[in-house]
Design a protein around this nucleic acid. Sequence first.
DNA 1: GGGAATTATGATATCGATTGCAATTCTAGT
DNA 2: ACTAGAATTGCAATCGATATCATAATTCCC
Lengths: 328, 328
Amino acid sequence: MTIYDIAKEAGVSASTVSRVINNKPGVRKETKKKIQQLLAKYNYSPNEAARGLVTQASKIIGILVDDIRTIHHTDGAYIIERELVKLGYCCIIFNTGTDEASKANYINILKRRRVEGAVLIGSSFQVKAVEQAIKKYLSDTPIVMANGYLDLPNVYGILADEQNGVANCVKLLFDKGYRRPAFVIDLHTPSNLAKKAGFEQAVQSLAPGEEILVYETERTLQGGYKVTQKIVRERPDVDGIIYAVDLLAAAGTRALIDMAISIPEQVAVIGIDNSIYAEICNPKLTSLDNKLLNLSMTAAHNLISALNGKQPNKKILIFSSIEERETT
Amino acid sequence: MTIYDIAKEAGVSASTVSRVINNKPGVRKETKKKIQQLLAKYNYSPNEAARGLVTQASKIIGILVDDIRTIHHTDGAYIIERELVKLGYCCIIFNTGTDEASKANYINILKRRRVEGAVLIGSSFQVKAVEQAIKKYLSDTPIVMANGYLDLPNVYGILADEQNGVANCVKLLFDKGYRRPAFVIDLHTPSNLAKKAGFEQAVQSLAPGEEILVYETERTLQGGYKVTQKIVRERPDVDGIIYAVDLLAAAGTRALIDMAISIPEQVAVIGIDNSIYAEICNPKLTSLDNKLLNLSMTAAHNLISALNGKQPNKKILIFSSIEERETT
DNA sequence: GGGAATTATGATATCGATTGCAATTCTAGT
DNA sequence: ACTAGAATTGCAATCGATATCATAATTCCC
């Protein structure tokens, strides 16, 4: 059922039907009524692709996430979708994986769909390959990065200040009398590297000359469990462990309990993200709240501003706080 | 940069450029090479909307979720997106909320975008308003429901057999010597009502004449915590609690611990979904594994079959199993 | 070398909308 | 009743691709 079919049955031209659909003035009341009845009768729905072609507006926003399952990213996608739908946009969403080349490929897909804006969620987009792809394909589409930044004219970044956040975690440990902290990292994303840098910086300033203990593992419960066992085995003097994400901290907590190590008396645990995992965990995790929700909200609103022709801040830093619970 | 711009600069017609883009035969090698160079030079990307208009194929799949944040739904969306992108589709995703009328509205949006298929994730879509909207707008688009079913010719349902699943949970409790089970429900979705029915049926058959204890709460940690306190207060004889979702069970576990009730000696706890929450929780939750991942995979594959013109099973039942951990 | 068969290319219609401008109808004022 | 001006309505171009069919250019074979 197209606009022409409706027009023919109503005995008018397509232009008139179009005017009715879009609520434009200049249609006689009776004509309008008759057309509206036909539209309802046939459940007419305009073809947005055809409409977009002539109006040069796809009304599509692209969302790229490296993995939609990771819990805090989901919150971001939720908020962004909710805000944009209100304005008549629809969101196409892609899981890009962590591979740089495939991320670039998804940028191209966004171009083919002629998105009017894009949101890249996660620090892993803060890489050369993505920068080049944006320059190549999406150089005049507003792009908001949630927890990332690239120095391009059409990119607006919102960043969690994770380096200082983690440094503050170390400070908290020292304030409470802990003396030998370790840090567990999983992926080498820009975000995680910033956390690591914060850890190193804080240890150097609070315990100059002290060895900096950084351990690596994969982002799974098994990974968190095993690396914790390893830390205890290799360095029994460690009395505080900071994990790059809550998931790992939750697994680490369990490992410590299974080794009959008391938390927080013998070893303190701090997670990052202040996600629901931190609250489900028993004991409840102390966690660095990097305000990811706030970050997503800001991303959504910045994109909306940009879509309305305003110029949002190029780069916003969002400060974190520590939510102390039962593991420190 | 359109196909005409490329054609003009190459000194050929748009048809020829189109042939090159789509790798169709009938273009001389040198011509092809020259055009490809120009395409690369100008980073040409075809306009998918224009292409879709003439080919009558949007290459868009619609995904409707009531709330993308709920963890197992995210897994479903992840798998479906990943499988469909491989085939050149892109997914538009909407959080519909729980309201029936707005769900119907989203069905209309899918029609406007001329989706070639749709996936409805969550049992809350199994309602009259959605059925009518599908009949009205999407009656010849294949629709797959993940954990739901509607009796329409173009709808393919995959359902978790939650009723029997929960009944088996009750049986497990009785087998282990527990005698007074309670059930905690949050939303009144078709899925939850099936769980409740399974609970009632099992209690009636295993302990005829016994009172059936069903408690309601909201789907939050606070909700799970408070309702558990209430159960213990009102019915200290309850020795096993089944929660409609793991999240509530995790909160309930903590409530029991805080009341110095030992798990599983005094009270057993069973969650549903066998999600990561069950493993993070300490003690680790025994949980009904309703194979949501399997369900999502099946949904994705059924949709792909339907897109390829095959006729998938109209209604598939997926059986559950119980993952026993530390709370029974 | 000439005509048939084959290959390469282009002209044009089409998909389903919107939109500027022209044409028609209506209303009102004298 | 006649005409200016306003209100309706329609024509035709356009958006950026694809696809059919006709035509032009090659190749092949005897």
